[in-house]
Design a protein around this nucleic acid. Sequence first.
DNA 1: TAGATTGTTAATCGATTAACAATC
DNA 2: TAGATTGTTAATCGATTAACAATC
Lengths: 224, 224
Amino acid sequence: MLTLARATGQGTNLALVKRRRISTETIARLPLYLRCLNEINAGQLTCSSDELAAGVGVNAAQVRKDLSYFSPPGVRGVGYRVDALRDLLRTELGLTEKHRVAIAGVGNLGRAILLYPGCTDAGFDIVVAFDTDPLRIGATLNGIVVDDIANLERVVREKAVTIGIIATPAGAAQAVADRFVAAGVRSVLNFAPSVLKLRSDVQVRRVDLSTELQILSYHQGQLG
Amino acid sequence: MLTLARATGQGTNLALVKRRRISTETIARLPLYLRCLNEINAGQLTCSSDELAAGVGVNAAQVRKDLSYFSPPGVRGVGYRVDALRDLLRTELGLTEKHRVAIAGVGNLGRAILLYPGCTDAGFDIVVAFDTDPLRIGATLNGIVVDDIANLERVVREKAVTIGIIATPAGAAQAVADRFVAAGVRSVLNFAPSVLKLRSDVQVRRVDLSTELQILSYHQGQLG
DNA sequence: TAGATTGTTAATCGATTAACAATC
DNA sequence: TAGATTGTTAATCGATTAACAATC
């Protein structure tokens, strides 16, 4: 699955024809294209790369290039069929599958994530929440009973969790991440202000409020 | 301030010697280097680019290149002086100034941000919160009285807000952003799931939970 | 057919990394 | 001096964009 397969030119090797590594930049734009498509009026059957580009804030050539990796339902002179492209992106993004999500840490941020509609919306099921605080363990949040983090490995395995969200203090983040990975999780979303070191086959995304503020702070200093 | 100045070779034009545009990628790593430095034991006086690279998960050459834009306190054969480099990064990031922050939307996410210690920690003062909901207006959160968003322009001006955080539903985000900008805000942190279109002199950072989950979903599909 | 717009190649641009002289 | 490590140049790599043939 990780190898780069190319057309053999013999025409028989169809299953192998399409396997190239697509950049994270491209992948990160797909949800934005999808969102843009979802905002299009039901009566509009096609949309152009120009329209998608405007909606997402990128170049139209970028849109066509990004979509070209996925044999998109584009018609020259016409545009992309909205429905078909939406379905394609959903499929490619794996949104036709349910994802079972665990969240570690139910402080203010963890609770906000747990209650965030965007999660449950698109096929992401938060199936368990963990904390260390005896005052929080056993509480019910959004239908989830907060479990003792001591049970992490067992529960993550039992519930077949595929995505782990880390909303612990920075000091605990690495250890919790390691435990997620040991329990089989291969996708981690890290809200703690720390850079996680994990195996290269584990996908980590970082969402870091204080870093974002500091970047804005830099640009404040560059104004006028 | 936006022009590219170069050394004249005459030696007199010192004020203009150092002005180049530094990439957002580089700027975005500075807070990580700073955090890494803050975690270093007080007894350790210097640190190498290797050590910073390991802490931040990048190449050591990258670290040296990034820091080289700021005349860092590095000594060949020795490393960077920890204290001096920390001070330098704080200064360059503008963290020696106070930033006055407004937040629009005090739903679950807005409240979590308001209560997030990382904000207040590093010189970011949340000075006002806005909402449309009469049930929320007037409530006190973390010492801030929630104001009616109808007053946004006036209050943002009065309190000299420099950074606006958007934690509204997606449908309101663009309008609120436009109002922030009209009131003089030039840095916006957008937590709503939408791509804002703003003047090019306004710096926008997007933090988008559902997009992040979808990116992880894609990579789940690529696993073995 | 003329006009529109994709798909794709090639050019450009910019970021990362390797390499190494400078120098502590 | 020998060893270490920065600062910086040049090489590499990869992403974005322009251009245009294909084609509806």
